[in-house]
Nucleic acid binder design. Structure first.
Lengths: 130, 130
DNA sequence: TCACGGCTTTACGTTAGCGTCAAACAACTG
DNA sequence: CAGTTGTTTGACGCTAACGTAAAGCCGTGA
């Protein structure tokens, strides 16, 4: 029973989030300009809530996965789509994206396996020189 | 006993490879300009062999994984390093990259799990309307 | 021979994703 | 009141990864 607010509290400044996630304020503004997040305003100043912070986490994960901001934007829409979109179309889009990700997963596993092999070969050679 | 040549045959033109992998000839030339592949020449014309083709496959997989050409270049060097580089330094680099990839793998698995959940929620809603 | 397709290089254009000032306002501090 | 700190909105700059002509060389078939 710590909070029963309909409006989730936890307010963050742009600098708070920049610091927490190790990105620039410029980047955050840029994401907003691309519609990936839409913080409220107190006058002109951006005020971020938990929802914005959560989206930022998804954005950064998407970036680590090598997605473009456009891709990430589509991806975020899947989360919102809960109420806003037609549900059939949603399921289709999610399936599409899942296929891509599974391809990526396969690529990744192959690559990791190859690198492990390279590393092991290197190790052998160090341990037992000719 | 189909082939015992020291020089592996299988010659490809730039257009062959572009067609096979669904990329532009421009892209292939660009990769060469960045040192990712170095086909032989017959006069001025590029002649690609199996080795070049294999590297191209690695390049494209790297791209699917969201790596920059610089990253991919380093990555390719790990394959060559067999003889060229110092082996200790190699093992370090491979380990670094493996850590990145494993982080990426974790991100990917999380994302896939979330998307599956979203999809299942969507399905439920379709099957059993209020 | 000449038109054609395929190859080459050179070079400028484009998009994404920010970095980096610049100029201005707002609140706090000494 | 002046100075500092944090915020805002432009606006220009920059790198990566090619796209897109442009213009020329080369070999082949009719």
């Amino acid at each position: 029973m710590t909070s029963a607010d309909p409006e989730s509290a936890d307010l963050y400044s742009i600098a708070d989030l920049a610091r927490e996630f190790g990105i620039s304020t410029r980047a955050i503004r840029f994401y907003e300009s691309k519609g990936l997040i839409s913080p409220e305003r107190l006058g002109a100043t951006r005020v971020f809530r938990r929802r914005d912070r959560a989206r930022l986490i998804l954005i950064l994960r998407g970036k680590r996965l090598g997605f473009s901001l456009r891709d990430i934007s589509d991806y975020l829409a899947l989360y919102d789509a809960d109420r806003s979109q037609q549900v059939n179309l949603l399921a289709e889009k999610v399936d599409e994206r899942l296929q891509l990700l599974e391809q990526q997963l396969a690529d990744l596993q192959t690559t990791i396996a190859e690198l492990r092999e390279i590393r092991n070969l290197a190790r052998e050679r160090v341990i037992s020189p000719s």
